[in-house]
Every structure is written in structure tokens, then in C-alpha cells.
């Protein structure tokens, strides 16, 4: 991992692979977020809703994706974070988080294209992050 986010160049990649999605991950997120929609935790309720099984909260995946930037808080913060939910995340899916620098960074910010991809290479969420640089 690069020491400083400001040293990244267009095309550079930040990437992390998550542990397979577990029911406990989603139970914990339900508790922490207050989103107790049972399609995220209870098989029968997911099936009743026409799903093959429980699915992750979209916001769980979006929350995870932002952690690619957490090590760089001494240099700035996430100013803009836009996500489109593109696919469902199921139990045992292996999710890869990715952020790619899209433009030459200027004095104000660095733009990234971000996404979370499942083990079949399909994006489940995708969007953009604008990282605001703060002066020393």
C-alpha cells in the first residue's frame, strides 16, 4: 500500500479482498445500523421476498468500500461519495473492493472510480469518490 494518497497517479489502484460474507457480518450490520429488514438475516423472509437467500445490505457494502480511504485521513477526507447499487451480495460471496485514480490530482482533490466486485467479476456497487486534500 502506498504511504501517501497524494503520491498516487492516474490508473493506480487501491484494493482489498474481504473475507467471505457471513450471516454474522449482516447481523452485526443490522444491529449497528438499525436496519432490521429480515431479508438480510432470515432465510425464510428472503425466500418470501422472492430471493434465493439472504442478501447483504447495500449500505454494508458501501460502508466497507469506504475503508480503502481510512488509512489516509491525515491527508484529507472523503468529500463526495456516490454509489449505484448494481447487484446483490449473497452469503459466502467473496467481495473485492477497488478504487482507481481517474485524473491527475490537483491541489484540491483526487478523484477515484470505486467499485465492489463479486467472485464472478460482476460489480455489485459502483461509483465515485472525491477525496478532498487538506493542507499540512
Amino acid at each position: 500500500m502506498t504511504q501517501h494518497i497524494v503520491e498516487l497517479r492516474p490508473g493506480d489502484l487501491l484494493e482489498t479482498v474481504l473475507e467471505p460474507v457471513s450471516r454474522m457480518d449482516l447481523i452485526k450490520y443490522s444491529g449497528a445500523s438499525g436496519d432490521f429488514n429480515p431479508i438480510h438475516t432470515i432465510d425464510e423472509e428472503a425466500k418470501k421476498a422472492g430471493l434465493p437467500g439472504i442478501i447483504a445490505h447495500g449500505m454494508w457494502t458501501m460502508g466497507n468500500l469506504a475503508k480503502l480511504f481510512t488509512p489516509y485521513y491525515e491527508e484529507g477526507f472523503i468529500q463526495d461519495y456516490q454509489i449505484r447499487f448494481a447487484g446483490m451480495v449473497f452469503l459466502n460471496d467473496i467481495i473485492t473492493l477497488q478504487a482507481v485514480v481517474v485524473e491527475e490530482s490537483d491541489d484540491e482533490y483526487i478523484d477515484f472510480e470505486v467499485r465492489a466486485v463479486n467472485q464472478h467479476g460482476k460489480p455489485v456497487i459502483k461509483g465515485k469518490i472525491r477525496f478532498k486534500k487538506l493542507k499540512e
Binding site: D25, Y29, G31, W60, A66, K67, T70, Y73, F77
Partner: peptide, 27 residues
């Protein structure tokens, strides 16, 4: 719950020592 228990969020000392002067919250 989002797998990001970074000191900037949860460790008081790390928060005080940071440029924000305290802990911050995930976006």
C-alpha cells in the same frame, strides 16, 4: 460492523493526535 475498526474512529489517543483533534465517524 463495516470491518473498519481504525484508530481514527475508535481510539481516543489516536483521535486527539490526529489533524481533526478528535475521533471522526465513518462517512
Amino acid at each position: 460492523a463495516i470491518g473498519d475498526p481504525h484508530p481514527i474512529y475508535i481510539d481516543e489517543q489516536a483521535g486527539k493526535a490526529s489533524r481533526f483533534g478528535g475521533n471522526i465517524a465513518p462517512p
